[in-house]
């Protein structure tokens, strides 16, 4: 499962651990949100960073206080057409989550710059998708998006609205 960032494809430095598997001490692991809630004391006390996997119905406002000690939130995208994860990421950033946000699922290259703009740092994509859509497509999508974007307050280059008011050149 390659990890896509603004710099291209990279390896996954995190181990995703299934609920029924024991979490080893040391190393960076991602566990389900449910398990994290049940075992928070032990999980945050171990060596190595902890990440939580949340579903597309994760309610940020309900749970954001419980993310203390969490270094990564992995948001599941069931399919690329389901854009809830973009708003979850935005809410996490709005409400002050400063760790890594990962999108997990079959996003397409054109969505990478949108994900990054919403505060997502990396995208874990399935191997077959990576084989069909090479790294160059993802980098190209990021490059094209960097050219112009209108919205303010997103993690993009300067908004067109701001560039106009500061007299910035295109």
């Amino acid at each position: 499962m390659p990890i896509v960032t603004e710099r291209g494809f990279g390896p996954d430095g995190w181990a995703t651990v299934a609920d029924e598997t024991a979490v080893a001490d040391g190393g960076d692991v991602i566990v389900s949100w449910k398990r994290f809630v049940a075992e928070a004391a032990t999980l945050t006390g171990r060596a190595g960073r902890i990440g939580v996997a949340v579903g597309p119905d994760f309610d940020v406002d309900l749970h954001v206080a419980g993310l203390d000690g969490v270094a990564l939130v992995a948001i599941a995208f069931a399919k690329f057409a389901d854009g809830r994860g973009f708003s979850i990421a935005r809410r996490l950033r709005d409400r002050g989550f400063a760790g890594t946000i990962r999108a997990v699922g079959p996003l397409i290259a054109e969505q990478a710059p949108m994900a990054f703009a919403c505060g997502i740092d990396e995208i874990a994509i399935p191997d077959d998708l990576a084989a069909r859509q090479p790294e160059s497509r993802w980098l190209r999508a990021v490059e094209l998006r960097a050219a112009v974007s209108y919205q303010r307050g997103y993690r993009t280059g300067a908004s067109v609205f701001d560039q106009r008011s500061t007299g910035g050149a295109a």
Binding site: I108, R132, Q133, L144, A147, V160
Partner: peptide, 28 residues
């Protein structure tokens, strides 16, 4: 203005590439 022009022109270039990617099978 130059920003609006840049946006639509980028978009046209991108769509041209997407049509090519579709025809090449990179996109289902």
């Amino acid at each position: 203005d130059e920003f609006d022009h840049a946006f639509v022109q980028t978009r046209v270039a991108q769509f041209r590439e997407q049509v090519e990617a579709r025809l090449a099978g990179q996109l289902t």
